[in-house]
Design a protein around this nucleic acid. Structure first.
Lengths: 249, 249
DNA sequence: TTAAAATGTGCAAAAAACTGCAAGTGTAGT
DNA sequence: ACTACACTTGCAGTTTTTTGCACATTTTAA
């Protein structure tokens, strides 16, 4: 087998599987691993692949999969935010949790929107406060370091004083049997209070968290009025939830 | 599984769930926890994640969002912050306003300090929440767009429930006849409540604001226990205030 | 305070990589 | 045909990387 032929094969395999082991190539092509190593080195020098100890990775792994992974999921959250924004009408009272998805929601709010936003998340509040026409109400209490949220009985009591039109929660895990679940007891208490005090509960999550489970249940599926992901509403992954009575957006 | 592949997976999981346990990773990837620990260490060294006992956290939350250089008279405010920090002892309850000077104070707090900080300023709260040993209590109410502070009767009532050891206020104007003055009615109400509810009131300001006047009086000079500027305590500009009974630092 | 879990460190085995070298191959010019 | 030469390939010895294990230490939780 010719050198160029061999390298073309390697490149093909790498791009196909996103990775390749040097030992596998040795067996497949039946050449010494020295030859394979030299091929990988040349391809890496040309920038066609990324050579690592034990084999090689596709370029898309770093440049198209890893770094943009953050951007990619960022894009997903923007899609989710757009859908969520469409639910908010002038004059509404909206209570929200925290997290990056909610921050995206805050950034996506149209400037002409007149509404009142209630939250205990410092990051979310900062975003809301930048908007010109939105009333912002901060829920105060002891601030949780992990979640950058005010959490405690005092805050929960304050939340219960409101009756909001919408409750937006970025969620960490949801599955058919256990509903929405999370891993922070105090945050869960706050989320429950938010759900109880609003007419409609909307859960926001990227699809990767669908069908995952965390130790503490926030609420059952019945309590979720609407589920928003970056996927289209008729996506098969969401079908079971639609069947269980959750509206999908 | 290749090392880079593994680390990419870890990074993905961390960014997805905002946290990950080392033991879980061991099971998922099926390698020894030594390997996982080394991976976490490397990722943490690169700054991709934050390594903690038992696993790792996403660093996306903890990145600072204020550029220090953008703050006016940044160096002077750091000097002020250093002086102010020297007043805080372990176990104290400290109530603070907002503004860039207070943010500098927050950044200058020593990591080993154990104290409780109370504030209604979103920016200040964000800074306090980054510190490991500080209890943070958020005062909630309607958020003022201009000052990024929670302000209103509810918040004032909450402030009055505390008796703090120290009250730090960044001030906009101070002069001999009118004492401390400001230009935002709601903010002034909150500042008054903070002064009333603490044993000692400390005013922080850069020297440019000394001998200036704003429309609304916050408090008289008598109510100010301590005045901190970037100038040395015996500077002639401050002499009249010392004569009037204000301690200078 | 005590027990369990997690961490750091040193070490050793296995895998992989690097280096130099020699044998094989193909090409071009004489 | 034959030689010179560049190029490729495989081999052996050494070095580096990776990984798991044992043990002492630290941290956490009850």
């Amino acid at each position: 087998m010719l050198k160029q032929e061999r390298q073309a094969y390697i490149l093909h395999q790498v791009n196909l599987h996103n990775k390749i082991l040097a030992v596998d190539l040795c067996q497949h092509i039946n050449v010494s691993n020295d030859t394979i190593r030299r091929d990988l080195q040349e391809l890496a020098d040309k920038g066609s692949i990324i050579k690592v100890h034990g084999g090689a990775l596709s370029n898309s792994f770093h440049k198209g999969n890893l770094l943009p992974e953050a951007i990619y999921s960022h894009a997903k959250k923007q899609i989710i935010a757009q859908k969520a924004v469409s639910l908010i009408k002038d004059g509404m009272f909206v209570i929200t949790g925290g997290g990056t998805t909610i921050s995206e929601l805050a950034k996506a709010l149209p400037v002409e929107l007149n509404a009142t936003f209630i939250s205990g998340s410092l990051t979310a509040l900062m975003e809301y406060a930048k908007h010109p026409n939105i009333e912002v109400i901060s829920i105060g209490d002891k601030v949780s370091k992990a979640s950058k949220m005010s959490i405690g009985p005092d805050g929960i009591m304050k939340v219960r004083q409101f009756t909001s039109d919408l409750c937006f929660l970025g969620i960490n895990a949801i599955d058919l049997h256990n509903g929405v679940s999370d891993n922070d007891w105090d945050v869960v208490q706050m989320k429950r209070a938010m759900i109880d005090s609003s007419k409609m509960t909307v859960c926001l999550t990227i699809s990767e968290k669908i069908n995952s489970l965390q130790p503490i249940q926030v609420c059952s599926l019945k309590a979720v009025d609407l589920l928003i992901t970056e996927l289209p509403a008729d996506h098969p992954l969401l079908k079971p939830y639609a069947d269980a009575g959750v509206r999908i957006l």
